[in-house]
Amino acid sequence: MRLLDAVVQGCLLGGQYALFAAGLSLMFGVLKVVNLAHGDLGILAAFAAIGLAAGAGLPLALAVGVVLVGMLGIGAALHAGLLARTTGALPQISMIATFGLSVVIGNALQEVFSADPRALDLGWFGTAGVSLGGISVGLLPAAVLAVAVLALTGLHLALTRTAFGRRVRATADDPGTAALVGVDARRTYLVVTALAVGLAGLAGVAYAASSLVTPLAGPSRLIFAFEAVVIGGLGSLWGTLLGAMVLGVAQSVGSVVDPSSGVLVGHLVFLMVLATRPAGLLARARVRA
């Protein structure tokens, strides 16, 4: 029973990781850039939401809305101001730049908000739950998982069914040729980066609603998101969801076995998948996302 409970809680935890992973995977798939500040951008959104709701007293929905719109803007600025300007040097210089950004965001947040853990207060909803056959399911984690599934489904539909999605996939395949058929590759990259950072913001807000957040939690979010993407298989959005759940279950079950080793067990499962199925559990070469 304890094990079953751990599996259920792990799946719910996976929802949170899937949200972080969605933006990371989108950006890597299209721009071929790993944004090392992805986790920190999520934490930035979390603290911005906490600051607006608890500090400035804005209604929660308004605070979250403002933050998410702001994150889209930050994403656009990240591309226009950083990623689009670091081309031409060493191929990986833009990734190094995002690492610099990660250091800046994390440490600046620590100075402004101190190292104290904080959370986004959702009132009764944050703690409410239902009991299903003896296993308690929190409404909030279930809602986060639902949001993650919705976000991934929406992303999948947008990429496969819309003109914008076709342009994104064409640019991901071959940006030079995309320009030759009338696609503004630079603008496509900008919109994708904005979306990815917006998703990071959504993930950060969900994280702050579900648990205590510290300013330097960004790197661990990045690592979990990355593990989810690799476990599931690059290029498959459903694989990302599966990978996030596998990671969540591994951490949750690991914590049951030994309370201090949940994260380690998650890492070990990741390394095992890398050793045995390097292309991921649901590897599909063709569909990019």
């Binding site: 996939r169 071959d174 569909v287």
Partner: peptide, 8 residues
């Protein structure tokens, strides 16, 4: 060399 988008 055609340069089609292979995943489309």
């Amino acid at each position: 060399g055609r340069r089609l988008f292979p995943s489309l």
